[in-house]
Nucleic acid binder design. Sequence first.
DNA 1: TCTCAGGGGCGAT
DNA 2: ATCGCCCCTGAG
Length: 280
Amino acid sequence: MNKLILEDYNLEMTLLGGQAFNWDFEDECFYGFTQSRIIKLMPVETCRGKSLLQWQTYPENDDIDFLKSYLRLDVNYKNILNKIQKDRYVKTAVKKYPNLRLVKQDFEETLLSFIISTNNNIKSIRKYIRLLSQKFGKSINVNGDKYYLFPRTEVIAEAKLEDLLSCSLGFRAKYLKGTAKYLLENKLTKKIHKLSEENTRIELKKIKGVGDKITDCVMVFSLGFDNITPLDVWGKRVLTDFYKVNKKMKYKDMRRWIENYFEGYAGWAGQFLFEYIRHQ
DNA sequence: TCTCAGGGGCGAT
DNA sequence: ATCGCCCCTGAG
């Protein structure tokens, strides 16, 4: 296995929190599945904020470029922490959930995953995505054990609606299939990475089943817009309970408020505040 | 057994 | 701009 030293990086909170639904912790290892690879991360030693990690990717091995990009090892984390700690709420959250990070996920997987998140809780979302992967994803052999990849977009696009429904997706099934088709027909993945913030939002909201909240999730969790944070029920609670923002305020205005307040880092701040208020 | 809410969004009004 | 509804599940 390959080795990597991680500094100030809480894998558990980062990978098993609400930003990604495709990681599991078993036998002291983190296993992740994407559309093209299984990732195994094994923390072996921790000392003063640094931890030694053994890792491997499957079926193609040694994909360090993927890992670096996914974990965002290039960010200046200390600088981000300095920027976001503007009040006692963030300061408390940073203390309670040290070394929480944002990762950068694949665009299509993120979009498809958050379609499933609609009016659902994290536990259910994780469950449905696994059902979907077992039914539609390719299986990969990792040291004799079987792991399933996240379904390819083409497979979801061509899946029978009844087969999607058998994964307990309910009314989300038609949005999932429709989104997969839309991605392919419009070659959206190629285009989306070149757009401005405003145009990215416009393009994403054209998709049936994608509104303000899912748009924001995709933009911060996969497209690198660090100043966006999803205002779901918890995000709204952060604003109304902590910052005394008017409950009646529109989504757009709430978003403007928090983006303005955190000056470029609302995405990072939002992750901390989300964990904080969700566990209160 | 029942109610309720869950990292929402659509379509009708 | 508001509101009922969507499909399902786990918690209480």
